[in-house]
Design a protein around this nucleic acid. Structure first.
Lengths: 346, 346
DNA sequence: GAGCTGGATGTTTGCGTAAACATCACGTAG
DNA sequence: CTACGTGATGTTTACGCAAACATCCAGCTC
């Protein structure tokens, strides 16, 4: 891309492409007829249609969606606000959102925000000027609340990963159910108690997982070991793994990345998984089956989350009315080789 | 999201939001003055401005970007066509693209395509109707070529992961350089030769990495072991890892996921890394440092790739001229614990 | 006080499209 | 032979915004 090449490059053509009027002129018909052909109206005689299509091709006509949007009053576009694409969950969800949206004829506009006050404000400011009919927010809603700019009116919203079901339509993975399944699985194997490597305290998902872990231990009347915290990263899981005491036989990590780090720390310390320590993760990232050993983990159906988000916003857009309530997407426990009964269930 | 709730939800208001005319009426000024306030023109007296702003707030006015785009003839939006978000590279690149674009005041529209003839065609059809000023294509260009619909005129393009530098502006990681560094590193450690776990043959990036591996071996006059193929997934790396013969002391995997699977296969076979076998990956995904053992790998600067893409399309948009040529983003070898000299360098 | 200057505001216009309505040619029934 | 219906096409209009141009008025100068 060294400077602009001279070769084939067309010499600064007319800034705007051909319009209906241009096509109409070439085809010798009215602009309206071009519009009809463009929209597949049946009321055009075959010969005329052919002439118009030829003219379109000749001029490289491309319908101007701005004009169309202006006329229709809708953009057929959804905005997605998120902090980053570094978590598998966000990415998988986004992927599913894009897919379902495409199926419905909607495009997706990305609105990356940095997780600071100004960052979120910035995203909302841009959003205000954006051509979207609805918004899907993939982040904890308290950040949304603390934004000084509120969501623009006439824009419908669905939120992922939040407890704001009383104010917004929320779609979320069944965090509690997944975490319960993980901890109960470990208890059923015979472990006296289960340690927990939690995610960052400001994450709603992390909180829910921790809550459920605590609830299961209490219900079973087990001692509750101290909490370990990570920041979702494998590195933080590794650090935590070095703190786990020798008498710990089971750990529930709040996500698979941290579980990976944990596995490495245990490996380095000579503690075998699952013989000495059982480990359960959360997410079921695609690599989890190739960890050493293959990780038992809670599978999240991100595809379903994405689909429900799109479904939700579109319904709101069509009805022109906000909804609320939380839709939970169920999880399943995937049993692999990182869990086993404790060696001496003393 | 159980049915539409009745509570706070506003009762099906007017479909479209307030327009400039509405604001103008409420504020008792002309529409043009509203426009001036909206665009921060200095030629508005303080008192008038305040009145207009108040009216805007009262009506929840939001500028209609379709109208603005129609007037300006540009959308300030870039389209990104990609197959999936399952590869780290694509995701990281997309993230960087979104960020740089936002910095320049451009929004990003996602165009997921499925990697089939019809899928690609579908994406291009949608693209044709899309409100974008330029497009970044993240996929091998031969798929782009085989699409029966070509790219719409007046839309500028930058391509990632391709050798079509003679026809498009291409931005890519220095695949050859990275692969060379990996293989040379292994030879320098004293390995007699290096096996290669390649990516799918239809991937341009995979081809380049394989080419470089082959070139280095030939230049050094080493025997060239048979190629192993994977599909980028950890699982495929695991399968390949079971085929590696006992006398193999070094493997260069075409990406980190496959390296992960390879590590597991070697572990299960009782072959220690790096004592018995050295492994090098490619990508430097964030988890690579937490593999068992931490993976030596080729670091790709996806952020830079994304930034250059945006820079490239914007330059083309501004000059209204297509460019070509390939911009290579350098790589660095990250040495971790998965490589060491062979035990008996016989 | 006539003429001028310049800042603040208003009016006109057109971007490309498509709905609503108008027209036109042709065939057919009365 | 005329009136009317029908299907194909054309004309008008408005969507919301902002550039270009027009106007108006206060404060000057001479």
């Amino acid at each position: 891309m060294k400077d602009n090449a001279v070769g084939v490059a067309p010499p600064a053509r007319r800034r705007r492409g051909a319009s209906m009027a241009d096509v109409a002129r070439v085809a010798g018909v009215s602009a309206q007829t071009v519009s009809r052909v463009s929209n597949g109206s049946p009321d055009v005689v075959e010969e005329t249609r052919a002439r118009v299509l030829a003219a379109m091709k000749e001029l490289g006509y491309r319908p101007n969606s701005a004009a169309r949007a202006l006329k229709h009053g809708e953009f057929r576009t959804l905005g997605v606000i998120l902090f980053n694409l570094s978590s598998t969950g966000n990415v998988r969800t986004l992927e599913a959102i894009a897919e379902s949206a495409a199926l419905e004829g909607y495009a997706i506009t990305l609105l990356p925000a940095v997780p600071t006050q100004t960052g979120v404000n910035g995203a909302f400011t841009r959003l205000g000027e954006l051509a979207v009919d609805g918004v899907i927010v993939i982040m904890e809603v308290h950040l949304l609340d603390s934004a000084t700019l509120s969501l623009p009116p006439h824009v419908q919203v669905v939120v992922v990963d939040s407890d704001a079901g009383d104010r917004y339509a929320v779609v979320d993975t069944d965090q509690r159910g997944g975490a319960r399944a993980a901890v109960e699985h470990l208890l059923e194997l015979g472990h006296r108690t289960v340690w927990h490597l939690a995610g960052p305290p400001d994450s709603f998902a992390a909180q829910r997982r921790t809550d459920a872990w605590l609830a299961v231990l209490r219900e079973a009347g087990r001692t509750v070991p101290p909490l370990l915290f990570g920041d979702w990263s494998a590195e933080s899981g590794y650090m935590a793994g070095r703190l786990v005491p020798e008498d710990c036989t089971a750990v529930f990590a709040a996500n698979d990345q941290m579980a990976l780090g944990l596995l490495r720390a245990l490996h380095e310390r000579g503690r075998r998984v699952p013989e000495d320590v059982s480990v359960v993760g959360f997410d079921d990232i695609s690599e989890a089956a190739s960890f050493i050993p293959p990780l038992t983990t809670v599978h999240q159906d991100f595809g379903e989350v994405g689909r429900r988000c799109v479904e939700g916003v579109l319904r709101q857009i069509r009805h022109q009315s906000a909804e609320h309530g939380t839709a939970l997407v169920p999880t399943t426990l995937v049993r692999r080789a990182s869990t086993a009964p404790p060696r001496q269930p003393r």
